[in-house]
């Protein structure tokens, strides 16, 4: 591992000031991504600023409803917080399915949003990779791409975003609060994830030194019946082949509100907006679900080893919506 300098920050301002003035520095929270990637040589930071002492770990109900989750709240603490389980079960489920107990005790919510892709070519520190070494090419396009994305890809990068909880957060229109060298700002979570396009090395609209301090999830009745399904080769401790966050509001047999997002198939945590648009107002039937799923995956760009995910993702969506019907918030005569 490369030599590292270390600074333990006592205040947010100090942490932001330190990282923003040191070009090869980074924040260190749970370390589950950062320490791994520095050891691999993929992350080339010289200074890590330890932010674990900052008072950013609280999970609070917001006055107008909704939840504010501190950036340093650990995955396990959020997953088991009563208000999360009650108001946003899909978040809790996604967190619990997202990593081992040990990792969930370490990894923070802010760090989770910023975790890096698991593409083997990115991680091997040798193969051409536009994300790691811009301009060198994408080895996955014509390589081993079973785990790679089919939505939101570009010819420069097809790496899948690995987060589970971010899938739930994009479905619920969470917002990301940051403090950076230019002050505080609020970023809607969908804007927080940038498609790879021509610049796959730029994953977030964050300035260097800009720190995530909290994630806010708005009040959302539909989320009370939300559900996160994750399909993977192994029963546990693996990233998704495909995952689905689904939540429905149904009135008189028709869908009045739906939240649908996908993991494992997108270069970002994928809000299935096409499917959602088609579902709102439609009868809550298998036919509607299948048609919406087909519409969403119509845009898929397939490669040699991941082509099966187009069909797989559709089936997963239908499964997710089917199961969400059980827990859906129903109104009117059923």
């Amino acid at each position: 591992m490369r030599p590292l300098s270390y600074r333990r920050a006592a205040e947010i301002g100090e942490a932001v000031a330190t990282v923003s003035t040191e070009p090869t520095s980074a924040f260190l929270a749970g370390g589950t991504t950062e320490v791994d990637l520095v050891r691999l040589g993929v992350a080339r930071h010289d200074l890590l600023v330890d932010i674990n002492d900052l008072p950013l770990a609280d999970i609070e109900n917001l006055p107008g409803g909704g939840l504010r989750i501190g950036a340093l709240a650990r995955m396990n603490d959020v997953a088991r917080a009563a208000q999360v389980v009650e108001m946003y079960p899909g978040i809790a489920q996604a967190l619990l399915l997202g990593a081992s107990e040990q990792l969930r005790n370490m990894a923070t919510m802010g760090g989770n949003l910023c975790q890096r892709v698991r593409c083997a070519y990115f991680r091997d520190n040798v193969s051409p990779c536009n994300k790691r070494e811009p301009g060198t090419g994408c080895s996955a396009l014509d390589g081993q791409n079973r785990g790679h994305a089919i939505l939101g890809t570009s010819e420069h990068c097809i790496a899948t975003h690995p987060s589970d909880v971010a899938v739930a957060l994009v479905a619920f229109d969470a917002v990301v609060h940051t403090i950076g060298p230019s002050g505080a700002r609020i970023i809607p979570i969908e804007n927080f994830y940038l498609l790879p396009g021509r610049t796959p090395h730029i994953e977030h609209p964050l300035e260097h030194g800009e720190l995530i301090v909290a994630i806010e999830v708005p009040p959302l009745p539909v989320a009370r019946g939300s559900l996160y399904l994750k399909f993977r080769d192994r029963q546990s401790y693996e990233f998704a082949l495909v995952s689905v966050l689904s939540a429905l509001l149904v009135q008189d047999g028709r869908i009045t509100e739906v939240r649908l997002a996908l993991g494992g198939v997108g270069t970002t945590p994928w809000r299935a907006r096409r499917a959602e648009a088609q579902l709102v107002g439609a009868p809550a039937t298998a036919g509607s679900f299948a048609a919406a799923a087909a519409a969403e995956l119509d845009a898929a760009v397939l490669h040699e080893h991941n082509a099966f995910k187009q069909e797989l993702a559709q089936r997963a969506i239908v499964r997710g919506l089917d199961q969400a019907m059980v827990s859906a918030v129903h109104g009117g005569a059923r």
Binding site: R118, Q144, R234, S236
Partner: peptide
Amino acid sequence: GATSLGEYLVPVNA
């Protein structure tokens, strides 16, 4: 293609 236990999948307890 796989050079880690995250990529080469061996059975876990579950």
